[in-house]
Each structure stands twice: as C-alpha cells, then as structure tokens.
Nucleic acid binder design. Structure first.
Length: 469
RNA sequence: GGUAAUAUAGCCAAGUGGUAAGGCAACGGUCUGCAAAACCGUCAUCGCCGGUUCGACUCCGGUUAUUACCUCCA
C-alpha cells in the first residue's frame, strides 16, 4: 500500500495505478543549454528513487522524460557562441548522459526532445484552436487560461491575483497580442530569419515551453498518466499550463498524482548565478572522487524536503555511506569462514528490517526512515562480522539484503574490491608469516608498505582483512 | 501584497495525543601486541505565547523567524 503526496490535493493519497502492475510516469527534464546543475540532479535522482522503489515493488515502470532543446535560452546561447541551436542542444544533451552516468541514474524508458515532436505539437495546438481554447494572434498562438475551469489550482493561485501580477510584468507587444494577460503561448512566431523555426499553419515559429510535455506525455504514455514529476518551482506555471492544455484537449484528467521535489540550496543559499554558487554536476564530479556520496546525499533526503549542499553535508554523506560500505565489506570477509547453516534470530531480524524499510518507503518515499532500517542491518552485520562463528546462509542473506535495499537508493557496488597485484599479494603472505612468529616489527613494516601501495590491512581473529584505501 | 512550506540536540535528520528513529561529532567503556574496524553506554522535551485534553512536541488560535512560488528557474 504505497501512499504518495499529491501536490494537487496537498494530501498523501493511496496510490492506485490505472493499470494494475504498471506505472506511467513523466518527469520534466532539463533545458539543454548548459551543464545540468545540482538541482537538476536532485530532481533526476528523486524520481529515479521513486522509479526504483516501484520496480522493487514489482511494478513495470514506463518512465518518460524530455530534453527541452528549443527555447529562448538555447537561442541566446547559440547566438553568443556563433553556432546554431542544435549544436548547443546536442552538446549539453550529451553532457547530461555523461554526468548522470556516474550518479547511477537509470536512463528513461523514453527520452524525447521537443524537436522530435514538432508535428505532434502542431496538431495539438491546432486541436486547441478548434476547440476554442487557443487563438492565433500575429503568428503567436495563446491559450485562453480563463476558459479552462480550475486554472491555477495546482499551485493554489488565484486568477485575479495572477492577472494583476501578469499585467504589470508583460511588455506592450505581448499585451496587445493577448486577449488576457494570463494567457500563455503554446506557439511562438519566430522573430528573426536565422532563428530556429518550423513551418506551421500560423507561420514560421516554434513551440511554447509547456506544450512539449503535454504532447510527449500523451504521445508516449496516455491521455491520463499515473505520475507526473518535477521540481516544485514547476508547479506554476509549467505544470499548471500543462494541465490546462492537456485536459482542454482530451477532456480527461491529465495526471492522477502530481509529485514535486524540493530545492537544493548551496551553502544555505538559493543557488543562483548572481550569488556565485551555481553548481554544475560537471564541476562536482571533476572535483570530488566519490560520486556515490553525492548520490547518497541527494537520494536519502526525503524528496520533498530542501537539501543543503555544502562541503560539510557532502562529507557527512560520504562518512555515513562509508559506514555501510565498511560493514558490507567486513561481513563479506566472513563468507570464507562461515559454516553451513542458518541463524534464525538474525533471519528474523532481517525480515523485520525489510518490513520496516518497506513501510517507510510506502509512506511517500520516506527515505530517511528507510535508511534507518539499513543502519539497523549494518549494526547487525558489524556484530556478526565479529562473531566467533557465523552461518553461511545468514551471512549471505544479510549481505544480499543490504545490497538490495541500497540499490533502491541507486547505490550499488558497495564493495568494489579488485584483485591484488602480485607484489601486494606477496607482501600480505609475508606479513601472515611475520605475525605467526610474532615478529611485530616486520608485521608493522609490511602493513606500512602495503598502505603505500593503497592497501589497508586489518587484523582479525580470522586473519588479515584488507581493502583498498 | 497574495499563496504555501518549514522551525526537533553541536551538525544532518525522522517521528508521534501518552513521556522524542537513524547518521555524524563528543565523552566514557570493551576488544586489540600496536593499529584499524567494530561493539556497548552517555548525550534533546521538540521557535515563542495562549487554548483544548486526564495528558501535546504532536490538535486549535495567535505570534516570531526562515524559505519558496506568483509566466519560461529542478
């Protein structure tokens, strides 16, 4: 029984998929005009965890996301660099894949670009006009926001307020073209010859920002989808407008559950270029050698809560993750000395923690609580690793469980052990001999030598335990 | 101005009408040739003021602070 917080109703609701066992979800992707920043990564990771948990629960998840590859920011950047828009879009779409790979974000089932669906967008806009929900005005096409009943409820915005706000902000050109200040563009005429554009019934132009998501969700998923996700800032206007467009066209509910992730602050401040704390994933990965620690920080905070990203919080994440890795590694070491059999008390404990983990995740993906269960298992693993005698099946079960639960957070490869070089192997053997004869001087020297070669050796009742530094 | 969210120990962070998970740090102990890793123990009364209640940190009212959104920012 999974419960999901629905932004539309502002309540946790029992999750019921439209088709049993299947989930159609759409998550807003980035505008590819720059490297993705940590906020983009947070959003991707938050919904990656949602997806992974549904999959863990046995659902078949159809995950669709987009690249916004045509918009003002891309056009501007292309101009600045004297290249065409697609050069910019391709460059940063590629960078997205490079940056998300080390963060272990699963690729979308379908990752579509706005420019891949231009014909569909034109049909969609045409339909809106036919139904009286949109109108052409000097080459632009606008959506009649007021015509759509319930416009603004997702973000709990008041129509009159919005109207007043909008009127003060728009320039004269927009005001003269729009019937109403709160109307929004679904199609924009192109203003310059060298600007990217497509031929349409309304002249040369390009899609408005919101329309692509409505079109893709419908094209690749369905008229009504289970989950739509994105950053909380998108609730208004982006998702508000998506709802209006999509429902105006189909007459059906567009989305059953709206999910929005919280923001990432950098050093306790909102990330912005003017504050100089704009943090791209590209730079983070270049400056930090443990991408899984970044993932840990972003994945283990409850998705609706804000995250403060700083050297300090990142370091705390790394230390916490290391505790899990160390436990996993040290228990793995006991596989060699384990005896065939099972330990019922520990088996029961494992089942209890799995159950706690699932209860936590069922409750709107409460990752901090779920993690607490993992740490209970970690303590058990540490205790077991120190026991005189351990049962093989139970050791394996505990290891598998920790790995399985952590993989829900997208943290895999807990124990990245590589083979020893011949030299390292020889040194270890020599050290065993030295210890057998209580030659501690030689033993300490060899431990130091191994340390220099990147191998940390620890002495246990079961012999030497080593791992890479 | 409007609409929301948040306020829990040194830090990060859960949670609940009946006397506060987990992680880090700190302190004490155990284990250890030393070390490492680990284990055990200690460490908060929940922004402020009222109210409801047998009882609130958890519900209600108020207040303060912080933050976000109010047309293209995840």
């Amino acid at each position: 029984m999974i419960h999901v917080y629905n932004t539309l109703t502002r309540e946790k609701e029992l999750f019921k998929p439209i088709t049993p066992g299947k989930i159609n979800m759409y998550v807003c992707g980035p505008t590819v005009y720059n490297y993705i920043h940590i906020g983009n990564a947070r959003s991707s990771i938050a919904f990656d965890v949602v997806r992974r948990y549904f999959e863990y629960r046995g659902y078949d998840v159809n995950y669709v996301s987009n690249f916004t590859d045509v918009d003002d920011k891309i056009i501007k950047r292309a101009r600045e660099q004297g290249v065409d828009e697609m050069t910019i879009a391709n460059r940063y779409a590629d960078a997205f894949h490079q940056d998300t790979l080390p963060l272990n974000i699963k690729p979308a089932t379908v990752r579509s670009r706005a420019t891949d669906v231009i014909p569909d967008i034109i049909v969609f806009v045409g339909d809106l006009i036919k139904k009286g929900y949109a109108y052409e005005s000097e080459g632009d096409v606008y959506f009649r926001a007021k015509r759509f009943k319930g416009y603004g409820i997702l973000a709990h915005q008041d129509l009159a307020e919005m109207e007043a706000n909008a009127a003060g902000r728009l320039d004269d050109i927009e005001l003269t073209r729009k019937e109403d200040p709160i109307d929004f563009a679904v199609w924009k005429s192109s203003h310059a010859e060298d600007e990217i554009s497509w031929q349409s019934p309304w002249g040369k132009g390009r899609p408005g920002w919101h329309i692509e998501c409505s079109v893709m969700a419908q094209k690749y998923l369905a008229d009504t989808i289970d989950i739509h996700g994105g950053g909380i800032d998108l609730a208004f206007p982006h998702h508000t407008n998506e709802i209006a467009q999509s429902e105006a066209r189909t007459g059906q509910t567009f989305v059953n559950y709206w999910m929005h992730n919280g923001f990432v602050n950098v050093n306790d401040e909102k990330m912005s270029k003017s504050l100089g704390n704009f943090t791209t994933v590209h730079d983070m990965l270049a400056n930090y050698d443990d991408p899984m620690a970044i993932r840990y920080l972003l994945a283990t905070t409850q998705y609706r809560r804000p995250i403060n990203y700083s050297n300090d919080t990142l370091e705390q994440a790394r230390v916490a993750l290391d505790r899990i890795r160390t436990a996993y590694r040290n228990l793995s070491f006991r596989l060699e000395t384990a005896v065939v059999g099972q330990d019922q008390a520990i088996e029961n404990m494992i089942e209890n923690q799995i159950s706690n983990f699932e209860s936590a995740m069922d409750d709107d993906f409460n990752t901090p609580n779920a993690l607490a269960s993992v740490f209970e298992l970690v303590t058990t693993a540490n205790t077991l690793a120190e026991s005189r005698q351990v049962s093989l099946e139970t050791v394996q079960h505990l290891l598998d469980t920790i790995a399985k639960l952590m993989s829900v957070f997208g943290i895999e490869d807990l124990s990245v052990q590589s083979d020893l070089t011949k030299e390292q192997s020889e040194l270890l053997k020599s050290r065993t001999l030295a210890r057998d004869t209580h030659d501690f001087e030689a033993s300490d020297r060899l431990r130091q030598a191994l340390r220099q070669l990147g191998i940390v050796v620890e002495d246990t009742p079961q012999g030497q335990r080593w791992h890479k530094a």
